[in-house]
Nucleic acid binder design. Structure first.
Lengths: 121, 121
DNA sequence: CTTGCCTTTTACGTTAACGTCAATGCTAAA
DNA sequence: TTTAGCATTGACGTTAACGTAAAAGGCAAG
């Protein structure tokens, strides 16, 4: 169990950010006897997911949607089917992003090559 | 040469957004005799780059930096070298993002598999 | 010519994602 | 016991990226 300060340092975010994520229902750290936040390993994993989502331009609302869907124990068949559908969609989105990034990379490499040639001659 | 409305529709952004990008120096469309914006093919290409950057969570400031660097004719050797260094860094960033996305995809696929198995039995 | 639809600039409004500050409280050290 | 160093909850401030409304003008149709 880690304190706010520890987690903040570990992930390079402010304590305010952690409180904000809790406010939005993205994190639910336990509390000590004196009401201090205690982050479990699961909380840290979740935070990692949140920060990764952010790095790819997802909003916190979108991230919440994803985290909550993949988090809860989906028992009912209907629920399970919806989760699977959602997951499949998200995976396709990610695939699309990967393709786009690869295009981007190639274009940048071509540009870079041109510049390098200019430099060489 | 396309008008604001045409470009806006084509890229699914508002006219305000186009004006805002011009305000920031990201776009520099020509003007007609009656002072209306005219977007060349180059402007459209640039807009495409901007929107792609946004989709990956870059801020408009970062995008501006990239667009301007890759845009201008870099003549001086020093300038060229700096551009190449910057470009190399950016490509590495993109590579990192691709890797991370692939990890993300794999994790999601594992999760999905678990859910699917639950459903099957 | 005037009505309607487009554009322009100016300027204030809005929302997400925090930053920052104040007031309060526990507690370990001096 | 007082001082210092943490954490807590409000609550107001800030910034990026636009939205939106107002005022003015071009121009083609009726």
């Amino acid at each position: 169990m880690k304190t706010t300060r520890e987690v903040a340092q570990l992930f390079q975010v402010s304590s305010r950010t952690l409180r904000y994520y809790e406010e939005l229902g993205l994190l639910k750290p336990a509390r000590s006897e004196v009401n201090q936040r205690l982050f479990s390993k699961a909380d840290c994993t979740r935070l990692k997911l949140i920060l990764r989502g952010k790095r790819f331009g997802f909003t916190l609302e979108e991230i919440k949607e994803m985290v909550l869907l993949f988090d809860k124990d989906r028992t009912g068949k209907k629920q399970l089917e919806r989760t699977i559908k959602f997951g499949t969609e998200k995976i396709e989105e990610v695939e699309g992003k990967i393709k786009e990034l690869q295009e981007m990379k190639e274009e940048m490499e071509i540009l870079l090559l041109e510049f390098t040639e200019k430099l060489d001659k």
